[in-house]
Design a protein around this nucleic acid. Structure first.
Lengths: 402, 402
DNA sequence: CTGAAAGCGCTAACAC
DNA sequence: GTGTTAGCGCTTTCAG
């Protein structure tokens, strides 16, 4: 198990593909994998020729049809697979994309990872997952993954603003780093984010149109997003209603339990709010639970709007009105920033039919022109506009007006 | 970006750590990383010596204190990082652990991934994530990850019984493969799973003790788990009550929406059940919602028990009584089966204080002796016994007795 | 105590 | 058309 131990193993040259069992009787694993050298020896050509053939090398270099056929045949029936490690060592991309996420358990980020994973796969990339969460020494992530440069690029999922050391080290990364749903301003790191201002504004406009005036806010998800969504709330309130009622902003951590706590706090205010905008669905679900438990009827007595449209949102009682963003497009945009457009270089050796890159995948993209978050200085930020999904948790205010 | 392009880059020998910008103005990335050769040149020794020193080589091989100091100093202030690709090429482990999961979006598997990720990190491993879900060509996972042998081992999270091609290919994998929460029988693949029978039995005993007799079952999560938990339900019912009332088993897919559908179907039965055992919390949550929406009071009119103890379970209304398994221990067991016990080989170069392997991490392990699933033939199966968590969704049956 | 040399598997310039 | 050579960064005998 120690590094290098394999080098001293008996080689088993002759058998090639003979199946073998590991010491402890595990029936998995085969003999030494077939290399180019094996194929070269077997077919009586040189390694370079094999390489050229197996890689559809610059087609300008002609290869004898017979040689090509023999080599391909040999490769096929010895089950040849190129060693990506050797390729990577020569400078080829590792086809690995690092993803640092703070909490996989947050339903929003679970969805985010899935979106990123799907988009990565379209580009033949795999995701290497790290979570900053639950690890005392955040910087450790880097030692194993960034500085180790096994990845072609790094994606930061969620706000890492409270992990200064991570961000510091990231600045020194040797590969591109892109932030996704990174609420806070990150100098020098290109970012893809949802237009929080627009999302909150549409939520509040919706409520105002329903006659609500006493609209409260529950903030969560530390740092960046809280700031942006909260600021957007204040801004929209000022603009539409002239002020933010005191005590109408509750800040808690991003769990349903805390959403419930925030709800209770809100119910203490007078006048009591008729609507709540939550900065995440997770919090909104907490508000809903609080209402259910305390007998406040939603939406009759209280309207609730969330943000994110997590799967649970359409399933709560009542179904949550929320703000949805184009997850797939955002993931695609981030990946493109990190590693470039999709491509199909390697031929498919597994018999799987590859889907070609479809430009339609990208035409839903709608960066918000002229909205490049001025205060972040030189960072490139692509903002995507979310849309309001109206479900059952919002309703006209009982007494129209205040 | 093209393979080999790096080789022709200007070397920038002198500056070593000087920051530079990439062509497109991205401020991330540095000059060529420091290699052993650089350090060798700088300190005037050979690469082998550098290697020995930097790896605390067989301490039997003495190194001049002066040389060692110089080399270490050079390595430190040029910020040397070993190239894991080069090491791996020589046979060192890649420290990458593949995880194939069918649906990250399922809260149970989100938690599972987190558990695996945490345990992997204790062993200095990173997780490469693949999902079988939402990908037409399941076998593709292999092309990028198995046959590519970038991982030292593969973990299968969840039941892949319906992906025959994947399992087939897996049999040929060159690295150890271990199944986690893989309900169905998998010849030849070592598995770690929860003792479904024991979990369901404790749920049913609990209900029976509360006076319930009309206990229904909602099954989900295809294949393996459904079979095991459903079979356990039938078995326990027969043993404790003598029979399974007809129509009391509802099989749906594993979503809250389907849980609700199953609930409605159950309410059509006569006599109507007084309790429901759901094969997952996700389904149980659906049952709870159905009850809420249709005005059936839980637990007064209907007791509900789930399985998995996902985070939401303690937060539902009412809080869900459920079956919890030792996630961390199970993840650890699977990883151990795959790559062996935790170890600390490499010295820490990042200034982070490493935590030593703590044997206490493993003493909660309680494989179920003598319960090694006879019918699976020769596969090694480690079963972990779950425990019942009683919360608010279960209550004494209204009319004691039938 | 240290260095030279070979080689992991693959690729690419440069012959012939 | 195909082979030779060199080398990616690191480890590891084997000789000094």
């Amino acid at each position: 198990m120690s590094p290098g131990s394999r080098a001293t193993e008996p080689h088993n040259e002759a058998t090639g593909r003979s199946t073998q069992e590991t010491a402890d009787g595990q029936p998995i694993g085969r003999g030494r994998p077939t290399t180019m050298r094996d194929i070269a020896t077997e077919t009586g050509v040189s390694r370079s020729t094999v390489s050229r053939i197996l890689n559809d090398a610059p087609l300008s270099v002609p290869i004898a049809a017979g040689t090509r056929a023999r080599v391909l045949a040999a490769a096929r029936d010895r089950g040849y697979r190129p060693n990506p490690l050797a390729r990577a060592l020569r400078g080829a991309p590792t086809m690995l994309l690092g993803a640092i996420v703070r909490d996989i358990t947050d339903p929003f980020f679970a969805g985010a990872i899935e979106a990123v994973s799907v988009e990565a796969r379209k580009r033949d990339y795999n995701i290497v997952l790290s979570h900053a969460h639950a690890e005392a020494t955040e910087a450790y992530v880097l030692a194993t993954m960034l500085e180790a440069r096994q990845c072609d690029a790094i994606l930061l999922l969620g706000d890492m603003g409270d992990q200064p050391r991570l961000l510091d080290d990231l600045r020194d990364a040797r590969v591109p780093v892109v932030a996704l749903w990174q609420g806070s301003e990150l100098d020098l790191i290109p970012a893809v984010n949802v237009d929080n201002r627009s999302g909150i504004a549409s939520a509040i406009s919706h409520l105002v149109a329903l006659g609500h005036r006493r609209i409260a806010f529950v903030g969560g998800r530390l740092l960046g997003d809280i700031r942006e969504r909260q600021a957007a709330y204040a801004e929209a309130m000022i603009e539409l209603l002239g002020d933010v009622p005191p005590g109408y902003v509750q800040l808690v951590s991003n769990t349903p339990a805390d959403g419930e706590i925030a709800f209770r706090a809100l119910m203490q205010q007078s006048p009591v709010p008729t609507a709540v905008v939550a900065s995440t669905d997770v919090l909104a679900l907490g508000v809903l639970r609080g209402a259910l438990v305390t007998g406040v009827r939603v939406p009759d007595q209280l309207s609730v709007v969330g943000f994110d449209d997590i799967p649970m949102a359409s399933f709560s009682v009542p179904a949550l009105t929320t703000v949805r963003m184009p997850m797939a497009e955002m993931a695609a945009a981030a990946i493109e920033l990190a590693i470039g457009a999709p491509r199909r270089t390697d031929r498919d050796r597994s018999g799987v039919v590859e889907r070609e890159f479809d430009p339609a995948d990208h035409e839903h993209e709608r960066p918000n022109p002229g909205n490049d978050v001025p205060e972040t200085g030189r960072a490139l930020v692509r903002l995507f506009r979310p849309e309001l999904i109206v479900r059952e948790s919002t309703h006209a205010a009982d007494p129209p007006g205040v």
